[in-house]
């Protein structure tokens, strides 16, 4: 699993958690089914996109700061 897909997967879960937690904290109501599904889909898409980009950036930085070891000869 790449850093981007790992970040996107965590971000999708984080988007769902953010939507549900916002309702539990009283920011909005999830009483209507259509509105709730729209909010969940938006949370998944936005969370996956943002956290996928964060994962990609962190992965590139990790590769840049940890170069691969040269192959052993002989």
């Amino acid at each position: 699993m790449s850093a981007t897909s790992h970040g996107a997967a965590a971000g999708a879960v984080l988007g769902i958690v953010a939507v549900l937690l916002a309702q539990q904290l009283g920011l909005w109501s999830l009483s209507d089914l259509v509105t709730s599904v729209v909010y969940l889909v938006l949370g998944i898409v936005v969370g996956a996109a943002v956290c996928g980009a964060i994962g990609m950036a962190l992965g590139r930085r990790w590769v840049a700061s940890h170069p691969a070891e040269p192959p052993a000869h002989g």
Partner: peptide, 13 residues
């Protein structure tokens, strides 16, 4: 999940 996102860079290795 925030911890998972912060550690996602290590997946590149």
């Amino acid at each position: 999940e925030v911890y998972n996102v912060a550690r996602s860079g290590r997946q590149a290795a």
